[in-house]
Write a protein that binds this DNA or RNA. Structure first.
Lengths: 346, 346
DNA sequence: CTGAAAGCGCTTACAG
DNA sequence: CTGAAAGCGCTTACAG
């Protein structure tokens, strides 16, 4: 096995110096077309590939972005990461992917490791568990550009790309009201988690706007998972309240509710309009919930990356900007594009 | 803003040389406990973080793995990437994530970029489109360790971690037969795509084993997406064949079939046992297909990474090894663990 | 146990 | 347009 060629190997063959080779390869205006061509020819002949590690060290530009997500094996984040990857690549950056597993400690360690790797910027979605913001303050101190996406910490001086949970919830619940539902229950998350709080506020906003009194009996709080939906629904039944629609704080909560209905009274499944925030990932295929608020993961990833790169390149400043990505209210159905023979996930 | 501290900053404070500092920080046996402690104290006082780029250049170890997946916003691959990330991290590696978008050209470019970044090894799942294997031969030449996962190219001298499509299909179809189905149709993919071919062979194996004659009328071929399932089912109906079970080459194909049944005869949905290869990502929540072959994405990622790291560290050799990860045949239901309040994908 | 020397492969000024 | 010098921040071998 031959050794990997380096700049000097090309230089020697041409009786020039490696500086010129380096410049030629990067199309530096200093170099004549003729030399460039010769250099490139030899380079491809030898199979030369620049050592990006060396380049990073001298140029102090790694062309690398660090990403921290709470989890990756979840539809929403997988889409976000797809959007990040795609946009970063177009701009000539590679991404180092890291997963915090909703763990504050791991999140901190990943951020530190990424900084040590000299990433030029960070894209992070904060773990649910995170309370201590020291690591973010440290990032500010050492001036590493960072953009939050989806889950952010306010007032730390970072830009964030998020969904307007409150408004989206308000609009969606408003639609239910317009369609004639007046006894809308809400299976909520926890108030100390921002999405839980905001979505509930949106629910309340919608009621207020349509002059419907908030009935506390119709609101049950308890988490974000399937089990929470199941328990929440049972709780509603115990309260013996009359409902014509349900707003679930997340898609899994909506599914948990479904299970509860199946057990108690399957006819409710069709009779009670179900609206959930977020979708399953097999959009429009599961016939439940009836309506859902679609969060454009890919777009969130793309916009966050765009902001980050602009910050890295000095085009914009981090200013506690909250960039809201619009959501859409979708009706679930079995329609799908029969034309596009989209590949499956095996 | 202060400049980032480097080894020399620590060294000067202690009146020793940066070599000793470097060793102390890495717990090199050369250094006395006393010195180590002093060094570490000053290091944390200054907020020192090693520059991993510089370390990589001198040690020629980047502690970095390159990953190429055909797509990321898909349940299966998201799980695989999760498994890779998790295992790599435990072993002290970071991963650079790259997406080929099922495009041969992009796949090649990503691999080249990753090599330029000096990743110590590569994990790739080949794009559907890839025909040219030059880039893999080149990897062999320059001796960059690589392991294929899920989609591989045989006989190139790389280890691969895959699912035994043929056996899994055979076993699953065999189960249908055992349960009394004897008129099992197969909505197949294409023969030139390995999973299409292998799963069909598995279907045929099962029939043979149970002495059921293969009826070509029961097999329709046409792709891997929802539309393929829909069309395939219509085609079966046109052939006017009698069926008691269906084996769909992929989960989306199974869903397409569902749509077809809904249109033509919804009673078939319960009457015709549906078995699909792969799942939706919301395991056990969609009440269809009735049975599915579960592909353990996380595990595939983990095992592939394990093999790769062992190869990097010289513990094993690449030998065209095919490591089969076992699948499971699961029955779909609405059960889910009500205890674990698993977080949702917002 | 500690250090002086050399170098990883590149790029950045700066000189000609 | 081309090149000689210096250095990025670290580690490796080798000497003491």
């Amino acid at each position: 096995m031959k050794k990997k060629p380096i700049l000097d190997d090309i230089a020697k063959r041409l009786n020039i110096t490696k500086v010129s080779v380096s410049k030629a390869l990067r199309d530096h205006p200093d170099i004549s077309e003729q030399t460039k061509n010769k250099v490139k020819e030899i380079a491809s002949e030898l199979g030369y590939r620049p050592n990006l590690i060396a380049r990073s060290l001298t140029s102090s530009k790694s062309r690398t972005l660090g990403v921290v997500v709470p989890k990756i094996a979840h539809n929403f984040f997988a889409h976000v990461v797809g959007g990040i990857q795609n946009y970063a690549n177009k701009k000539g950056y590679e991404i180092v992917l890291t997963v915090s597993e909703e763990n504050e400690e791991l999140e901190r360690k990943h951020i530190e490791a990424l900084v040590s790797m000299q990433v030029e910027g960070l894209l992070v979605s904060v773990s649910m568990q995170t309370r201590n913001t020291d690591v973010y303050k440290w990032l500010k101190e050492i001036q590493v550009p960072m953009v939050f996406f989806d889950r952010y910490i306010p007032d730390l001086g970072f830009n964030s790309v998020i969904v307007d949970d409150r408004k989206a919830a308000k609009d969606a619940v408003g639609q239910l009201i317009v369609q004639g539902c007046h006894k809308i229950a809400h299976i909520a998350g926890y108030d100390y988690i921002s999405i839980g709080k905001l979505r509930k506020l949106g629910y309340e906003d919608a009621l207020k706007e349509h002059d419907i009194d908030l009935n506390p009996e119709l609101v049950v709080e308890g988490g974000f998972g399937e089990a929470s939906g199941y328990k929440g629904f049972k709780e509603l039944i115990n309260r013996n309240v009359d409902i014509d629609a349900l707003f679930a704080v997340t898609f899994p909560v909506g599914l948990g509710t479904y299970v509860g209905m199946r057990e108690i009274d399957p006819t409710m499944i069709e009779k009670v309009k179900m609206l959930a925030f977020g979708d399953s990932g097999i959009r429009g295929i599961v016939p439940y919930p009836h309506y859902y608020v679609d969060q454009p993961g890919m777009k969130i990833g793309q916009i966050a990356t765009e902001l980050l790169i602009k910050e890295i390149e000095g085009e914009i400043m981090p200013v506690n900007l909250l960039e809201y990505v619009p959501t859409r209210l979708l009706k679930t159905g079995w329609e799908f594009p029969l034309e596009s023979s989209e590949m499956k996930n095996e």
